[in-house]
């Protein structure tokens, strides 16, 4: 009875994972013959300034995404854990970005951030009417913001669920002891959310490593190579420059970095406890 699931999953997910390792040692343009390449793709990718820059950009994007999303989601999630009715309404509205496809979000922000016809000109604020997506200095930050727009709702949900699991008595006891709201936040809420923070941050990190569709439609990796992160570099190398071998190297780097990060984060913070915590939330 398990056979259909095993076959489908095996053929289209497990086999490709080994396939990508094999393809990293061949030359293939996506259509023609496949020829043995040895370690050529690996050495080429390692010395390619574009790919090295892509790796650096990916690290930068990931760090910026976590720095932006984590505090905002934490703050919103803790707030929305309250039971007041208007907070439930807010939670309903906060969820909306999760319904949009990345393509839809990217198209919307392209129009909204247009220097001549976008929101900047509407509000008549020169500061907002910059060429957001055309300026290599700004584009990456715009990408970070738009990714945040898409995924903060999701992480807010995780924090909301985590906060609701904190026993109420802890707050009541600390109030008896005369603790104020700020003290309570730092001495009860934050420590109690430790495993939620780990889960959410791991997901943010691994997610940031693999963001593709949004950046692809929003900037296509540009201007220049200013937002050409690793997944984009992989796609463009494989399906635009028809160098599947080199692209497979980049895909493998992606898998390895992703696995290393999630294993590392779990190791540092205690994985088994985290799993049982996340199941409940």
């Amino acid at each position: 009875m398990a056979a259909p699931a095993l076959i489908l999953f095996g053929v289209f997910a497990i086999v490709p994972l080994f396939g990508v390792a094999a393809l990293s040692f061949v030359h293939w343009d996506g259509l023609g013959a496949i020829t043995w390449a040895g370690f050529d793709n690996w050495t080429d990718a390692a010395s390619d300034p574009v790919s090295r820059n892509a790796l650096w950009l990916t690290v930068k994007l990931t760090v910026l995404c976590v720095l932006f999303q984590a505090p905002v989601s934490l703050l919103l999630g803790v707030f929305l854990a309250g039971r007041q009715r208007y907070r439930a309404l807010l939670a309903t509205l906060f969820f909306l970005p999760l319904l949009f496809s990345s393509a839809a979000v990217a198209i919307t922000f392209t129009a909204l951030l247009d220097p001549n016809f976008g929101a900047g000109s509407a509000l008549d604020l020169p500061l907002l009417a910059q060429n957001w997506l055309g300026d290599p200095q700004l584009a990456l930050y715009v990408v970070v913001f738009v990714i945040g727009w898409c995924f903060i709702p999701f992480h807010t949900l995780i924090y909301q669920a985590g906060t609701r699991q904190i026993p109420r008595e802890l707050y009541e006891a600390s109030r008896m002891d005369g603790a104020g709201p700020v003290q309570q936040f730092f001495h009860i809420t934050l420590p109690m959310l430790k495993y939620t923070i780990v889960t959410s941050t791991t997901l943010m990190t691994v997610g940031s490593l693999t963001y593709f569709d949004l950046i692809f439609v929003l900037t296509g990796g540009g201007p220049g190579n200013a937002t050409r992160v690793l997944p984009l570099d992989m796609y463009l190398t494989g399906f635009r420059s028809y160098d599947m071998g080199r692209a497979s190297v980049l895909a493998l780097v992606l898998v390895i970095v992703g696995l290393a990060v999630s294993l590392g984060l779990n190791r540092i913070t205690g994985a088994s406890r985290m799993e049982s915590q996340s199941e409940g939330s």
Binding site: F12, V15, P16, L17, V20, T210, S248, A251, L252, G258
Partner: peptide, 11 residues
């Protein structure tokens, strides 16, 4: 844990 991006070329 397998990202689609990583498997897309063999797929």
């Amino acid at each position: 844990a397998i990202p689609i991006q990583a498997a897309i070329i063999p797929v």
